[in-house]
Simulated scan of single mutants.
Amino acid sequence: MTGIARSTRSHTRRSQPATFQVRVHLDDAKPPIWRRLLLSSELMLDELHAVLQQAMGWTDSHLHQFLVGENKVDRFAEQFHMQFMLDEGADGVLENRVRLDELPAEPKDRLFYRYDFGDGWEHTLVMEKVLPRADDEPPALCIGGARACPPEDCGGIWGYHHLLQDLGIPPPPAGSDDRPQGRARRIRSHLFLGRGDQRRPARSRRTAGADSRGR
């Protein structure tokens, strides 16, 4: 069935909003590339997509989807799509009809996010904590992270690793800080990227113009 409103695996929406502390990993990145986010449980999945793009440093230039299942290759995983993908015949649920608290609801629950079906940037979101929510709390906040995300259209995570090798940029020693600003600057100097192409994790970001469709 295509375009159904809710996942068969979904939880009931919370009667009171909460704040989810979530750690986002870019899968297979070595050394790890990650962000820690505080997210409103009331975010719709299309709004979460916008948050992830900003927090990771992507440019929102490609298709994406969310998945819920045992793992990211689970053939029974529930898929959550953009309208375009449903129009093209994909099976799944329209993302702007599903709220975050219908999916990962408890610590250690996971949600998978795939960006750019060509390069295949795979992300795993792991619920760390469920926190009480203040009335004046922003819908999304990035409170931590490590390392800049790769340049887009470089061939995925393995292409990125080969790119670093070709540029002679070794991984940092174990336990080193490897601040994303310095690493991104070294890569930019080889790729001739401008300042606007920096992939820098935000210390704090709010969702701008969050769309409340499907609430």
Results as ranks from 00 to 15, higher is better:
Pro107Ile: 08
Arg110Val: 04
Met56His: 00
Tyr113Val: 00
Ser40Arg: 09
Leu39Met: 12
Arg99Glu: 03
Glu95Asp: 12
Trp34Tyr: 12
Arg75Leu: 15
Glu102Ala: 05
Asn71Gln: 05
Asp101Lys: 09
Thr59Gly: 00
Pro132Val: 14
Asp119Tyr: 03
Glu122Arg: 13
Ala55Arg: 03
Glu102Met: 12
Asp60Val: 02
Ala134His: 15
Glu102Asn: 06
Leu45Thr: 04
Val68Tyr: 00
Arg133Ala: 14
Asp109Tyr: 00
Arg35His: 07
Leu94Thr: 06
Pro31His: 09
Val68Asn: 00
Arg133Glu: 12
Asn96Glu: 14
Leu39Lys: 04
Met44His: 08
Val51Cys: 08
Gly69Pro: 12
Glu137Thr: 08
Pro139Tyr: 04
Gly69Ala: 03
Glu42Ala: 07
Val73Cys: 08
Asp91Ser: 11
Gly57Ser: 00
Asp60Glu: 12
Lys72Leu: 05
Val51Arg: 02
Phe117Gln: 03
Met82Ser: 05
Leu43Pro: 15
Glu137Gln: 15
Asp109Thr: 01
Leu131Cys: 05
Glu88Phe: 04
His64Gly: 00
Asp116Val: 04
Glu122Gln: 10
Tyr115His: 13
Pro31Ser: 06
Pro104Ala: 06
Trp34Gly: 01
Trp58Ile: 01
Leu125Ala: 11
Phe80Trp: 07
Glu137Asp: 15
Met56Arg: 01
Val98Gly: 02
Leu63Cys: 02
Val130Lys: 14
Leu52Tyr: 05
Leu39Ile: 12
Phe66Asn: 11
Arg133Phe: 13
Ala90Gly: 02
Leu43Thr: 07
Phe76Asn: 13
Arg99Ser: 10
Thr59Trp: 03
Phe76Thr: 03
Asp60Asn: 15
Asp119Ile: 06
Lys72Arg: 13
Asp87Ala: 04
Glu128Leu: 15
Asp74Lys: 12
Glu47Leu: 00
Ser40Ile: 09
Met56Pro: 06
Asn96Tyr: 15
Leu43Glu: 09
His81Glu: 09
Glu70Cys: 01
Trp121Thr: 07
Leu37Cys: 10
Tyr113Arg: 07
Asp87Glu: 10
Phe117Ala: 05
